[in-house]
Design a protein around this nucleic acid. Structure first.
Length: 414
RNA sequence: GUGGCUGUAGCUCAGUUGGUUAGAGCGCCGGGUUGUGAUCCCGGAGGCCGGGGGUUCAAAUCCCCUCAGCCACCCCA
């Protein structure tokens, strides 16, 4: 039995789970279309550098969470841990001649070797958007608004808060980085092991830590917001004005720092307290340096990704599946007739359930369990008269209907 | 990767201080005569007690290892 379990951190998505997943992704799809975002699919695996160069060689995702292997020709290959790097690569290799801005939407599985937990799997699904070629802070506002629109349509907006921060541009961040590192030298011994390493790699992320020593060290530290240059300050101000225009409420969280190196300026997360420790359901920010870093032309970008499983857990019951009409032959003699009747009705747009065995009783029982709204009973008696018996599964009422007018009669069950 | 909790039929769980052939409810399959579902009645199948090793006359029950799930750290969507 243990051999037959799905691999650790993965799970089978059964029909009922899929109704939730589909509701989430189809809602996202529909709203993204309203904003003019076209769908893109990139490969599930890429050359390893696509991720290591963009997410940051020292980021946690790259150093310990990637599924990396050599393919048969010895090329280092990685199952994608996130979507943005692949989209950036696709932009460089095939979309450069497209007029900017480019608005893209994607969805699909992502892979991260992490310890599984509620709301965290090794294979999980994201949908996300990328807006390429827009320098204007209103670009950030558009993508955030789009995300809020989707969350609203999914009915989870009340369970979520938008946290916002700025990371500033490269110049501001560099300047701040050195003052922060200098400040933290005195606290070095109190820092967690992880954060001591972060001092070299990504000191900003120390703000994110829940470690007591880290928090104490950082409590009185100078803030990035004080170190921002005018451009960065103005940029952040305009993002906030834009959000006010669209009526989206947010709170500023100066400790919000993203773990992927490609972010700059805007960083945001829609977070919930309903999913235990895994609070972020839709998060992202601006990544102006990313495409250049990958070897493409300098192109600004902004976007986000959302967790399908996490949102699936938050939504109320998804819309029920379409109700079926059961076609039921009585006796072996009418099986073929029933089969072809089922086929005719399907081509006419009716959802038909057809079992393959059992007497009338069993088949009605099956229809009931499938929550069928009606059953069409076809026996020799009916066939001889050119009729079928239509049984309403709610009222148990049966009507004899001529086969020639069956479709009109069934319209109320569609 | 670190720590804590858990693991008994398809599902939710009982299982007394280690002691005969391991139980319930739900679900599943069949029956309650000929062509009528959900209720009711009767019957049945299904467990190497997650896996491996050890202690013991005896282990679902105690010990060790391992696998998996959950929770937190961590990480992020």
């Amino acid at each position: 039995m243990s051999d037959l379990q799905p691999p650790r951190g993965t799970r089978d998505i059964l029909p009922e789970d899929h109704r939730r997943h589909r509701h989430v992704t189809e809602t996202a799809f529909a709203i993204a279309a309203l904003y003019g975002y076209g769908e893109i699919s990139t490969p599930i695996f890429e050359a390893t550098e696509v991720f290591s160069r963009t997410l940051g060689e020292t980021s946690d995702v790259v150093t310990k969470e990637m599924y990396t292997f050599d393919d048969r020709k010895g090329r280092s290959t990685t199952l994608r841990p996130e979507g943005t790097a692949g989209v950036a690569r696709a932009f460089i290799s095939g979309l450069r001649s497209e007029p900017l801005p480019l608005k893209l939407f994607y969805r699909g599985p992502m892979f991260r070797y992490e310890r599984p937990q509620k709301g965290r799997q090794r294979q999980f699904h994201q949908f996300g958007v990328e807006l390429l070629g827009v320098e204007d802070p209103l670009g950030d506002v558009e993508t955030i608004t789009l995300g809020a629109h989707i969350l609203g349509d999914l009915g989870v907006m009340d369970d979520v808060t938008l946290q916002l921060n700025t990371l500033g541009d490269a110049e501001s961040r560099e300047a701040y980085r050195s003052t922060l590192v200098e400040y933290l030298q005195d606290f070095r011994a109190d820092l967690s092991e992880d954060s001591q390493a972060r001092l070299e790699n990504n000191p900003l992320r120390i703000f994110d830590s829940k470690h007591k020593g880290d928090q104490a060290a950082v409590a009185e530290a100078p803030l990035l917001s004080e170190a921002l240059n005018d451009y960065s300050k103005d940029f952040f101000g305009r993002v906030q004005e834009g959000l006010k225009i669209t009526g989206i409420s947010y709170e500023i969280n100066p400790r919000l720092v993203r773990g992927l190196d490609y972010y700059c300026h805007t960083a945001f997360e829609f977070v919930t307290d309903q999913l235990g420790a895994q609070g972020a359901v839709l998060a992202g920010g601006r990544y102006d340096g990313l495409i250049k870093q990958l070897g493409g032309p300098e192109t600004p970008g902004t976007g986000w990704a959302a967790g399908v499983e996490r949102l699936s857990m938050m939504i109320a019951a998804p819309p029920p599946p379409t109700r079926l009409i059961a076609v039921i032959p009585v006796g072996d003699e009418t099986r073929d007739n029933a089969f072809s009747l089922a086929q005719q009705l399907r081509h006419a747009g009716f959802a038909i359930d057809l079992g393959f065995s059992g007497n009338l009783k069993k088949r009605l029982n099956r229809a009931n369990k499938a929550n069928a709204c009606a059953a069409i009973i076809l026996g020799e008696d009916e066939l001889a008269k050119g009729v079928a018996l239509v049984r309403d599964m709610e009222t148990s009422e049966e009507t004899e209907v001529k086969l020639s007018s069956l479709q009109e009669h069934l319209v109320c069950y569609r």
